[in-house]
Simulated assay, not measured.
Amino acid sequence: MKTTRLIMSTFIIAIFCSNILTAQNNEATLLTASEITVKSGHNAQFMEGVKLWKECYLKDKGENNWSMWRRDQGEGNVYVMTGNMPNWAELDKEDERGKDCYMTIVNFIWPHVEKVDQTIAKTMPDYSRSWPDDAKYCRVTYYKVNKGYAFEQVISAVSNSIKEKEGTPRAVWYDFQFGGPESPEYMVVLPFTKYADLDISRDSPAKIYTDAVGEEKADEMWVKWFDTVDDSWSYTFTLMTELSN
C-alpha cells in the first residue's frame, strides 16, 4: 500500500492496491476499506475532486490501483474506497508517487468530506469464491456476532454444502481485523454484473444445507446461528469506474 501513508495522513481516503474484494490463489489477503460520507450537497464537487486527484496521480506515474464503490441505499452519499494487499508488511512501504498531489486532496476533496471510517478485513478463502472480472455491483451483508468460532462453524458448513452442489461458493467472506466499536465482525460480499441478476431464482443457502444434511441437523445449526448473530444489515454498491484505477 504504497500511497497509504500520504492519504491516511490527511484523514481522507484510504488505501490503494491491486484489485478490489478479491480472494486470490486460495490465500488470505487483507482488504482495506475507507467509508467516506460526503457532505450534503457536495456530491458533485467530491466526485470532481477525486477525478482531479486521479489525474494528478497518474500524471505523476503512480502505479497503484484502487476501486471506488458508491453505496446505493441508506442515508446520504457514501462511498467506499477499497484495495487489497497480500500482507501487513505492505504498510511499511513508502512511495514517492502522488506526493505532488497532496494539495489536490486538501483543496478539492477534503472540504467536501463529512467523515471517514477506516477498516481492515481479512479474506476467508476456505469459504469464498474468486472475484469475477466483470462484476460492476456487489451486495454486502455485515454481521455483528458474539461468538466468532460458532459463527465460522455455520458459514463453513453452509458454504461447503453450496460448493458441493454448485461447484463453488457464491460469495466472498471477510473477517474484520481492525475497526471502531460500531464495526461488524464479519461481512459477506456477493458480486453481480447487473441488477437483473438479483431476479434469478435460486435455492437459498439454508435450503441447500437442509437438503444436504436433513432437517434435524439443520435445525441445530440454525439455533447456533441465531445464538451468535446479534445484528446484520445489507447494502448494494456500484463500482464507480471513473473514480477508480
Rank of each mutant, 00 (worst) to 15 (best):
N107D: 15
L58F: 04
E96N: 12
C101F: 10
L91M: 07
K99Q: 14
D95G: 06
E94Y: 02
W66H: 03
V106R: 13
M103Y: 11
I109K: 10
N77S: 14
M68D: 09
E63P: 05
V78N: 06
W110H: 13
K54D: 05
L52Y: 11
N87Q: 03
P86H: 00
W69Q: 05
N107S: 14
R71I: 10
G83K: 03
T82F: 03
G83M: 04
D72N: 15
K54N: 08
D92P: 00
L58A: 08
E90A: 02
N107I: 10
N65F: 07
K59S: 15
K61H: 12
N87L: 01
G74H: 11
N107K: 15
F108K: 15
L52P: 04
N65D: 11
E90D: 07
V78L: 06
N65L: 08
K51C: 07
M103S: 13
M68K: 03
N84D: 05
L91Q: 01
P86T: 00
R70M: 14
E90I: 01
I105K: 04
V80Q: 06
Y57M: 05
M81Q: 14
D72I: 13
I105L: 13
Y102A: 11
R71L: 12
L52Q: 14
N64L: 02
S67I: 05
L58K: 07
M85Q: 02
M81Y: 12
W110F: 12
E96R: 08
C56F: 05
C101V: 07
P86I: 00
V50F: 07
N77T: 14
C56H: 06
Y102G: 08
V50N: 09
M103Q: 14
Y79C: 06
C101Y: 09
Y102K: 14
M103H: 13
V50R: 09
N107A: 14
G62A: 04
G76R: 11
V50Y: 08
K61R: 12
N84I: 02
E55N: 10
N77G: 06
R71Y: 09
Y79D: 09
G76C: 05
T82G: 05
L52C: 06
Y79M: 07
T82W: 01
K93S: 00
T82K: 03
L52E: 13
P86C: 00
R71E: 11
L58V: 12
R70I: 10
I109F: 06
I109R: 09
C56A: 12
C56N: 05
N64I: 01
S67P: 12
D92H: 00
G98H: 02
V78K: 11
N84T: 08
